[in-house]
């Protein structure tokens, strides 16, 4: 496990994720009203990048088939997805947002 840099805190817009690739994992990092959250960027239903989806009120909607996930918990909120997303701890280190994977 290691901490990975995403971007300086000031470069994040609300509800607009930044994506980092670590090996085979794609991680999407969001700024929400209460802080930064990192989730797996790949929908658990069929292959689609959640960072291409619609984000609102702490939820991300898959752009392909509209499955919805809670960004803070990774929980799959409705079908067609049934499996929760992986989530990763975040922190701010010297003004840079990081996640742990």
């Amino acid at each position: 496990m290691a901490w990975h840099d995403v971007a300086p805190e000031g470069e994040f817009e609300m509800d607009v994720p930044k994506v980092v690739q670590v090996g085979e994992d794609r991680v999407a990092v969001f700024r929400l009203a209460d802080g930064f959250y990192a989730i797996s960027d790949v929908c658990t239903h069929e292959y689609a990048l959640l960072s291409d989806g619609f984000c609102e009120e702490g939820k991300i909607e898959c752009p392909l088939h509209q499955a919805c996930f809670d960004i803070r918990s990774g929980k799959a909120l409705d079908e067609p997805a049934e499996v929760d997303l992986a989530i990763y701890p975040t922190r701010i280190d010297g003004g840079v947002v990081q996640f742990q994977l």
Partner: peptide
């Protein structure tokens, strides 16, 4: 290729 606009 624009599913993010479906909800709006």
């Amino acid at each position: 290729d624009n599913g993010r606009e479906a909800t709006p």
